[in-house]
Design a protein around this nucleic acid. Structure first.
Length: 233
DNA sequence: GCCAACGTTGGC
DNA sequence: GCCAACGTTGGC
C-alpha cells in the first residue's frame, strides 16, 4: 500500500531559519511562534504530546503545501526510491501515503495538514526539478509504518512502537499543472521578488531549500498556480 | 560527480 | 550546552 515515497524526505532537509524551528526531537512542538502568516500562536500541537501542557488544538497555520519526491530512479540500499507524480496517479484511487519523511520539521508540517489541504507535487533530484502537479490531503497524519520495517529503506531502529517518531499523511492526485513549472523559473521570480517585493520573496523552496515538506502562503500558492497559464520566463 | 548548505550525533 | 565531525539533500 505504500508508495515508496519521497525518499528525499529522508533524513535531512530543513533550515530552521524561517519557520518554526529546530528539530525538536520527537514529539515536541510546543509554543512556537511562526513568523510568516499572522495568525495566532501555535499552541501545543498534539494532544498526545507529553511534553506540553494541554492546550486546545492549534489552528493550522497553513493550508497550502509543497511536497518533494524523486521522479527518477535512484537506488538506496539497492531499492529504487523513484516516486514521481505519475506513480501517485497510477495507484489505486490515485492515492498514496507520503511515507519515508525523516526530518522533524517536515514531519511537523505534515502533522499540521488537514483533509482538503492542497499540495504541489515537486520533482526533486532530477534532470528538471520543479512543480509537476497538484494533490490533495485526504487523510491527516498517522503512524508511518515503514519506520518499524527492517526491510524498508526508511527503517528507524530508534523509533519504538509505543512512541512512534514518524508520521505520514495520505494524498490524492488531483491534476497535472497545465505546464511544468521548473525550479529555474521559480528562482527567477524569487530573485526578482526579493529585490522588488513580491509574493515569492520568502518562498520556502529557496529560504529552506532542503526542507522536503514545506508550507506556502495562500499568496505564494496562487502566484505559482497562475504561472501555469503564463508564458515561461 | 561535485559540493554547499545544513541537520544530527556524540564527546566533553 | 557547545561544537566538531559526519551524513544527507538536492541543485548544478
Amino acid at each position: 500500500m505504500a508508495p515508496k515515497k519521497s525518499t528525499r524526505a529522508s533524513t535531512r532537509a530543513a533550515d530552521s531559519s524561517t519557520f518554526d524551528v529546530t528539530p525538536k526531537d520527537d514529539d515536541s512542538r510546543e509554543e512556537v511562534e511562526v513568523k510568516k502568516p499572522i495568525r495566532g500562536k501555535r499552541s501545543a500541537s498534539d494532544s498526545s504530546d507529553k511534553k506540553t501542557k494541554s492546550v486546545p488544538p492549534s489552528i493550522p497555520l497553513f493550508s497550502h503545501w509543497l511536497m518533494k519526491s524523486e521522479p527518477e530512479t535512484r537506488l538506496e540500499y539497492g531499492v529504487d526510491v523513484k516516486f514521481g507524480i505519475e506513480d501517485l496517479k497510477a495507484l489505486p484511487n490515485q492515492t498514496g501515503c507520503w511515507d519515508g519523511v525523516r526530518n522533524y520539521q517536515a514531519r511537523n508540517f505534515m502533522r499540521d495538514m488537514r483533509e482538503g489541504h492542497v499540495a504541489f507535487f515537486y520533482h526533486s533530484n532530477c534532470k528538471e526539478p520543479g512543480i509537476a502537479g497538484i494533490m490533495e490531503v485526504v487523510k491527516v497524519a498517522y503512524v508511518d509504518h515503514t519506520q518499524f520495517d527492517k526491510k524498508d529503506v526508511h527503517f528507524d531502529a530508534s523509533s519504538k512502537a509505543d512512541n512512534p517518531k514518524w508520521s505520514m499523511v495520505d494524498v490524492r492526485y488531483q491534476r497535472m499543472l497545465q505546464r511544468f513549472i521548473p525550479l529555474s523559473e521559480l528562482k527567477k521570480y524569487h530573485l526578482k521578488h526579493s529585490a522588488t517585493g513580491g509574493p515569492l520573496k520568502s518562498m520556502a523552496l529557496f529560504t529552506s531549500a532542503r526542507l522536503s515538506v514545506q508550507p506556502l502562503t495562500p499568496e505564494e500558492f496562487q502566484f505559482v498556480l497562475d504561472l501555469e497559464t503564463k508564458e515561461p520566463i
